Simulated scan of single mutants.
Amino acid sequence: MSTVTKSNNFSEIVKGRRSIRKYDPSIKISKEEMTEILQETTLAPSSVNMQPWRFLVIESPEGKAKLAPLAKFNQLQVETSAAVIAIFGDLDNFSYGEQIYSTAVERGYMPQEVKERQMAALTNHFANLPAAINRETVVIDGALASMQLMLVARAHGYDTNPIGGYEKDQIAEAFGLDKDRYVPVMLLSIGKAAEEGYTSVRLPIETVAEWK
């Protein structure tokens, strides 16, 4: 296992990020460091702090062999990366609401009466939340976590590639997850680049933004 260099230079992290397709297969990421990366990823924002993102770290030869036919056009990333992280959105995320808000009270982040008021409102909210809105919300929150993960990985000295081209209708069941509960957001390969990524053009700000 080789070491990589961490960075606290935010400008370098943002401007140096590239989508990498070929990785150095000798570079592995320990479970301890991957846990740290995911912990920092979960600092991303989410709707009413329900944190609906769920991460499946696919790193074993058996796991990658199972993933390969589901990501036919991204074989190089699957084969050479240290891991491919499948990011899902949990449609039943409010089942953790009590745990999240009670822990906030225990740690002194929130008064008990605020927690009780919030939980009462949220219980009513989720009971009447249309399925389509719930799905849209967990996908947006999962996308926020995915971007955070790419930046955190870069800070840890690793490279990534977000992958949208895979069999989304099969991946949950393939790995033993409830496909009716867990919505696939994206795959994210992670490792150390074996080849430099391409610099790409961005549209000018006057094209994508306006002031009123």
Score class of each variant (00 low, 15 high):
Q51D: 09
E32V: 12
A83C: 11
A193L: 07
R107A: 08
S11D: 14
R54N: 06
A209P: 03
T123R: 11
S47Q: 03
E59Q: 15
T160W: 02
N49C: 07
L76M: 15
S200V: 15
L70Q: 03
A145G: 03
E113F: 13
D24I: 11
R154L: 05
I58L: 07
V201D: 09
P184R: 00
G16K: 14
T103E: 14
Y182K: 03
P45V: 07
L188W: 01
L67Q: 00
A71G: 09
G164D: 03
F88T: 02
L122P: 01
P184L: 02
V201H: 13
Y166F: 15
Y96R: 13
L177V: 09
K6S: 12
A104Y: 10
S26V: 12
A174T: 15
I205E: 10
V4Q: 10
K6N: 11
N93S: 13
I100D: 06
N128D: 12
N9I: 14
N134C: 11
E40A: 12
S2M: 12
R107W: 11
G89Y: 02
E62K: 14
E33K: 11
F55M: 09
N161A: 10
T3N: 13
A82I: 01
A68Q: 05
P45H: 08
M150G: 01
L144T: 07
Y198W: 15
D24Q: 15
A121E: 12
K22W: 12
R54K: 13
F73H: 15
M119W: 01
L129Q: 14
A127T: 10
T207C: 08
S46F: 03
A155I: 08
I85P: 00
S146W: 00
V208E: 12
G157S: 04
T3R: 10
D92W: 07
K64L: 06
Q170H: 08
P45G: 11
I87M: 04
S46N: 06
G191Q: 04
P61A: 08
E98D: 14
M186W: 05
L151K: 05
L38Q: 04
E113S: 14
P111W: 06
N128C: 07
E116Q: 13
W211G: 04
E210Y: 10
T123W: 07
D90A: 05
N74W: 06
D24P: 04
V185F: 00
Q112E: 14
L151V: 05
G142I: 00
L151D: 03
M147D: 04
K28C: 09
Y158E: 01
E210L: 09
Y109D: 11
L67E: 00
N49V: 10
G89L: 05
R18W: 07
L76G: 06
V208Y: 09
N124D: 15
L76D: 14
S60M: 11
I87K: 00
K179G: 03
N74H: 12
